[in-house]
Amino acid sequence: MVFWKKNNIVIDMVEEYLQKAEECVGLLKIGFTHYLKKGLGTEFDAFIEKTHKAESSCDDIKIKIESAMYEKSLIPESRGDILSLIESIDQIPNNAEHILYSIETQFLETPTEIKDKLEQLLNININAFYELTRAARALFKDTSKIQTISNNIDKEESASDYLERTIIRYIFSSENIAPDQRILFKELVGKLGSISDNCEKTADTIAIIAVKRIV
C-alpha cells in the first residue's frame, strides 16, 4: 500500500508539471499569435509575464519532483527515468519563454508576407508538444499508445523542418527584409522549430523507457 501511495504522489506531481508546461506553451501560442496580429506593446508584455510565471512554476515543480523522488526512495531505475524525462521536457517551457523574450528585446517587426507561415510553424510545433505530453501520460497509463504518438511527433517535426527551410529561404530572398533583420528572423524561426526537435528527442526517451520494460 505504501508503494502505491508513493507512486501516486510522484505521478500526481508529474501530472501537475505537465499541466503547467502545457499552460506555459499555451501562453506562447496565444502571445505569439497576438504579436503576429497586433505587434509589440503592453498586451504582449503581459503575455511574456504570464509565460515567465508559468515557466518559473515548471521549475519549482521540477525541483519538487526531484526532491520527492529521493525522499520517497523509489527504485533508482524508475527515479532516473523520471528525472531524465522531466529534464528533457523542461527545455520546451524554457524555450517558450525565450522566444517571447527575444521578440520583445529585439523589437522584431514581422513582415506581413511571412506572418501566416510563422503562425503555421508555431501551430505545428505546439501540436508536437501536446502530442509529447500525451506520450508522457501514456507512460503511466497505457504504454501501447506511445509508439503511435511518437510517430505523430516525427511527422510534426518533419513538417516543421520543411516549413522552417521555406521561411528561411523566403527571408533571405525577400528584398523587403533588412539584412540585420534576416539573421534575427532566422534565429526566431530556428527557436520555434527547436520545440518539435526537442519533442522528438524526448519522445525517443519515452519510447526507450517503455521499451526497457517490454518483456
Binding site: 508503494f3 507512486n7 510522484v10 505521478i11 523509489l74 527504485i75 531505475e77 524508475s78 527515468d81 507512460l139 503511466f140 497509463k141 497505457d142 504504454t143 501501447s144 523507457i209 517503455a210 520494460r213 518483456v215
Partner: peptide
C-alpha cells in the same frame, strides 16, 4: 511463460519496476 503473464498485466513502469 512468465513474459506472457506479465504482458497480460499491462503494467505501467513504476509498477513494473516494483
Amino acid at each position: 511463460l512468465l513474459a506472457r503473464l506479465i504482458r497480460r498485466l499491462n503494467l505501467h513502469f513504476f509498477t513494473y519496476d516494483y
